[in-house]
């Protein structure tokens, strides 16, 4: 029952997002039809272009025919997208939005997965150690450091890293996902090169992200350390090491599971600027290109895909949290936000 409710809610959200994009396309000054007409006219001259041809072209691109009533347009648009058809890209001639996304998405997912795992690994370990040494110089220092990195926008870190390590010192590549001319494949050279190119983008996310995780982990752990059952466990003779891991660590960690999933959404959003700075051919980069080229189908398609990814992550977090944390019985489900 709960699962059905959550699935229904996710579906409603997804349709709402599609509706927003539809509204945005319609709200664009001039709208896509004008834009496409102008494009076609530029290519072929003003003669020989009939209104119906423009309309069908627009439909091919954006999934709705501007000559039909609004509700028909909306219905066509939504059903097309729900069937997985995101339309044709305008600026990348002859390519469907789907194919562009399939090409770009793996790179973004690769980058984000590594960045998120590292961010949480570093943050959690640091936070736990800080909590155990609460009040020590190490704790104070790390807290200030964590708060500081937490207040650095990841793109600022990215710019600084690129400036120093690629442009000035030429240690890391400045842009791209792998060296030009390298044959993609599962060869050691290629894989090494991919990681080499991912180093700086990942570093900028991790360096600015671990502080927030550490502070949360520290707070959670300190709260756990103060719980009665920790004292009882000591009295029962449970070794300190086991208490640190099985009691404090685990219990402080579990509530952060949802944070992890939510930060996926945040980082997907952040990939826009990051990929622009590093000219990394992921979703965010294409989104920006779409916006600059006024390529409505492309930008809306990527936006919808990013939303869907976030939605799925939150849904997974919601539905699985009860399995990993016995405090939450599956029926109630901890709210993932």
């Amino acid at each position: 029952m709960y699962i059905l409710k959550r699935l229904g809610q996710a579906f409603v959200t997804f349709v709402a997002v599609i509706t927003v994009t539809f509204g945005l396309i319609r709200a664009m000054p001039g709208g896509p039809a004008d834009y496409i007409r102008a494009r076609v006219m530029r290519n072929r001259g003003s003669e020989g272009v009939s209104m119906s041809e423009i309309n069908s072209l627009t439909e091919a691109y954006t999934n709705f025919d501007p000559s039909t009533p609004v509700y028909v347009q909306y219905f066509d648009y939504v059903t097309n997208i729900l069937q997985g058809n995101l339309g044709q890209s305008v600026s990348f001639a002859g390519q469907s939005v789907n194919s562009l996304i399939i090409k770009a998405a793996p790179w973004t997912i690769f980058l984000l997965t590594i960045a998120i795992l590292l961010t949480f690994a570093v943050g959690i370990v640091l936070g736990a150690v800080m909590a155990y040494r609460e009040g020590s110089r190490f704790d104070t220092g790390s807290t200030v450091l964590s708060m500081f990195v937490n207040s650095v926008p990841y793109y600022v870190a990215a710019l600084l890293l690129v400036y120093v390590f690629s442009i000035q010192l030429s240690i890391f590549p400045q842009s791209g996902n792998y060296a030009v001319g390298l044959e993609p494949g599962l060869t050691p050279i290629f894989i090494a090169d991919v990681f080499y190119h991912a180093a700086l983008p990942v570093a900028s996310l991790v360096l600015t992200g671990f502080g927030g995780v550490a502070i949360t982990m520290r707070g959670n752990s300190i709260q756990e350390i103060g719980e009665d059952y920790i004292r009882v466990a000591h009295l029962r003779g449970v070794p300190g090491r086991r208490i640190a891991v099985r009691y404090v660590g685990r219990n402080a960690l579990l509530p952060m599971y949802t944070n992890l999933m939510i930060s996926v959404g945040f980082m997907f959003g952040g990939s826009v600027i990051l990929e622009q700075i590093f000219a990394y051919p992921g979703l965010g980069n294409y989104l920006l290109q779409g916006i600059h080229a006024r390529d409505y189908p492309l930008m809306m398609g990527i936006f919808i895909v990013i939303t869907a990814a976030v939605l799925i992550c939150i849904l997974i977090a919601d539905l699985t949290y009860g399995l990993i944390d016995p405090r939450v019985s599956a029926g109630e489900g901890k709210e993932a936000y």
Binding site: T21, G270, I291, F303
Partner: peptide, 23 residues
């Protein structure tokens, strides 16, 4: 609550960029 849920799920920065680009 449902409204907030929807608003919360939409990735912020891309949405903002779209809105700014449009309006």
């Amino acid at each position: 609550t449902t409204l907030s849920d929807i608003a919360m799920t939409i990735p912020g920065l891309p949405l903002i960029i779209l809105l700014i680009a449009v309006f």
